[in-house]
Design a protein around this nucleic acid. Structure first.
Lengths: 190, 190, 190, 190
DNA sequence: CATGAATGAGAGTTCATTCAT
DNA sequence: CATGAATGAACTCTCATTCAT
C-alpha cells in the first residue's frame, strides 16, 4: 500500500475522469487530490506537475492505442478490411473505456501538439492505411489527408454524438455501418 | 455611442481570437483588455463578466450562422442540393472567418451545453434536412442523428486538418468534394 | 492615494526592513504584504515577483550609492583625501539609513552576482581610487584588489559590529579613525 | 557503527557544501539526502531536524576552530606575533577547507546569534589578544572591539574577494601581508 | 464615464517532517 | 533499522472582479 502503485493508479483514473468532465484547464490539482483521496503534495511525488501528469496520461495511452490500431490494420488485407478493423478498434476503445476515448481523441488539451513525428499516432496509422489503398488502386486517387479526415470525422463525430446522448447504444453495434460509410465516401464509383 | 460600438467590436474581435488561440480558460480578462487597448474595468461596462462575454459571442454568432445555413438549405431542392448548399455554407464561414469558425464549431468552451432547444442551431438544421431526405425516400432509412454525425464529421474534421496544416488551400475549393463524400456515405446503393 | 506611488513606497520600505531582518529567503510575500498593509496580490501589480522586487530595490540604491561615492571621491585630491571622503560616505549611509546599508552591503541576497560590469558599483569606485593612488605612487605597489579588500573589510566589519551591538555610537564619529586605519594599512613606510 | 559514522560524515560533508553553495534556506533536506545518497527518513535518525543539523555543523567546527586559534595565539609572544599566528590560522583554514571557512565565517545562517558567551568563539579570541596588547601598551589605546573589527574585516574581506575570484592564489601566501596590514592599521605611530 | 490599483479566493508547487511498510 | 510515500502547512503567483479616483 505504501509502494505508491495503488496511489498512482487511483490518481490516474481520477484525473482522467476529471479531465474529460471538466477539461484539463478546469480541473485543479485539488480536485484530483480530493477525488483520489490523496493529499495535494502527494501528487508531486509521482508527477513533476500538472502538465507532466497530463502528458504521461496522454502519451502512454495514445501510443498504446496507436499500436493496437496498427496491429488490427496489419492483420487485415485490403483497404476495405483494414477500415473495418480500424473502425472496430475505435469503437471497442469507446465501449470499453469511454473516458479514455474522450481524453485521447476528443478532448482539447494541448498535448497533440507535443507529439513528435517519431511517436506512434492513430491518425498516422489511418493515413498510412488509406495511402496504401490509394497506391494499390483500391480506391480512386484522393489526397490521403482528405481521406483520413473523412474517416476520422465519421468515427469521432459519431462518438461525440454518443457522448452528447444524441445517439444511444454501443459504438461497436455501429462499427460495420460506420466503416461502410467511410468506404463509400472514399469510393466515388463503387 | 459610435465610440462605444467601436470599442465593443474591438473587444469582441480580440476576445474571439484569443479564445481560439489560447482557449477560453487560458485567456484572461487582462489579456483581452491589453490586446483590445481597453482598461480592464471598462470591459465590465460592456459585459457583466467573462462568462457573459463568452456567451454573448457564442450565442449571437451561432444563431446567425444557423440562420444562414437554414436559408441556404431552404433555397435548395432535394437533399443532394441541400447538402451542397450547407457544406458550401460551412466552407464559406471557414474561409471568411476562420477564427469564428473555430470558436463556434471546434473549440470546447462549455457553451454548447447552455443552448436551449428553442435556439437556432446549425446541427439541428443539418439534422432536419437529412431527416426530411429520409422521409422523402431520397436516401435509404438511416438514423438521422447518425447521418448528421457523418456529415458534420466530414466537414469539421476536414476543417480541423486545415487548421493543423495537414490540408492546405481553401475549404471552398473542397466544398463539392466534401458534399459528394457526404452524399455517397449516406446512399448505400447509389 | 489610488495612483500606486504611496503603495509602492510602503512596500519598498517594508520589504527592505524585512529582508534585512529575516533575510530575503526568510521573508515571504505574505510577510511584506501584511507589514505593508497591502494584499498579496497587489504586490504583483508593482513587481513581477519577489525576485524582481529584490532586484529593483538592490540595483536602484546600489547604483545611486555608487554614484554618490564617485562624486565624493572625484571631489577629493589625492588618495588620502579620497579615502577620507569615501569612508565618510559609507558612514553617512550607515547613519542615515542603516537598513539600506545592511541590504546593499552586508546582506547575502544573490543580487551582487547579477550586476553587470557596466553598472555603477561602490567596490569598483573604491578600487579605481586605490588603483590611481598606486599609479601616482601615493602608496607603494600593492594589488589593487587586495587594497580594496582591506578598505572594504575595515569599513564593513566595523559596520557589522555596530549592528551586532559590539560597537556603539555613530559610524560618522569613527569615520576619521577608519580612513586613517585604511591609510596606514596601505602605507608600509608612512 | 562504523557504517553509521561513515553515513554521518557523508551527510555532513554534503550538507556543508550545499549550505555554502545554495544557502541554508535554499538547501532542502531532499537535496542533502540525494547528494549524500541517503534516504530522507534516514537523516532524521541522525539529526532531529534541519535546524539541528545546521547547528551541529556550525557549533562543532566553530568551537574547534576557536580552540585552534587560541592555541596559536597562546604560543606566540606579543601582539605582533599573535596577529601573525592568528591570521595564518585563518588562512590555513581557508586553504585547507574553503567550504568550511565560508560556512563558519562568511555565510549568513542565523547560527552566530545562537552562540552563548560561554562558547569558544574566534572573534573573542582575536579580541582578547588585541585587548591584552592594548593593556600591555604594545599598541596605542584603541577600542578593542574596533581593533577586532579591523583585523577581522581585513581577513574576511580578503577571503571574500578570493571566493568571488577577484583575488587568486592561496590565502596562506598572503598571510604575512595581511597580518602586517593589520598591525599597521592598529599602530598609528609605528 | 474610464482607469488601473486593489482585493481575495484559490491555483500550482515546495518541503520539513512523519510513519507504514 | 531504512525507505520513500504521504502529509499539510506555507509559499509564490494568478485573476475575475470591485471601486476610489
Amino acid at each position: 500500500m505504501r509502494d505508491g502503485t495503488k496511489t498512482r493508479e487511483r490518481i490516474e483514473t481520477t484525473a482522467l475522469l476529471l479531465f474529460v468532465e471538466k477539461g484539463v484547464a478546469g480541473t485543479t490539482i485539488r480536485d484530483i487530490a480530493l477525488a483520489a483521496d490523496v493529499s495535494e503534495g502527494a501528487l508531486y511525488r509521482h508527477y513533476a506537475g500538472k502538465d507532466e501528469l497530463v502528458w504521461t496520461l496522454f502519451s502512454r495511452h495514445y501510443g498504446a492505442f496507436a499500436a493496437t490500431l496498427d496491429e488490427l490494420q496489419a492483420a487485415a488485407a485490403g483497404l476495405r478490411a483494414k477500415l473495418d478493423a480500424m473502425v472496430a478498434g475505435f469503437c471497442r476503445l469507446f465501449d470499453s473505456d469511454r473516458t479514455l476515448f474522450r481524453f485521447l481523441l476528443l478532448a482539447q488539451h494541448g498535448q497533440v501538439e507535443k507529439l513528435t513525428p517519431a511517436m506512434a499516432n492513430p491518425v498516422e496509422i489511418v493515413r498510412a492505411a488509406v495511402a496504401s489503398g490509394v497506391q494499390r488502386r483500391e480506391i480512386p486517387l484522393i489526397d490521403p489527408d482528405l481521406a483520413t479526415a473523412i474517416v476520422m470525422g465519421i468515427v469521432l463525430q459519431t462518438a461525440t454524438f454518443q457522448i452528447y446522448g444524441r445517439l444511444r447504444g454501443t459504438m461497436t453495434a455501429r462499427a460495420a455501418a460506420l466503416s461502410a460509410a467511410c468506404w463509400r465516401a472514399l469510393t466515388p464509383d463503387a
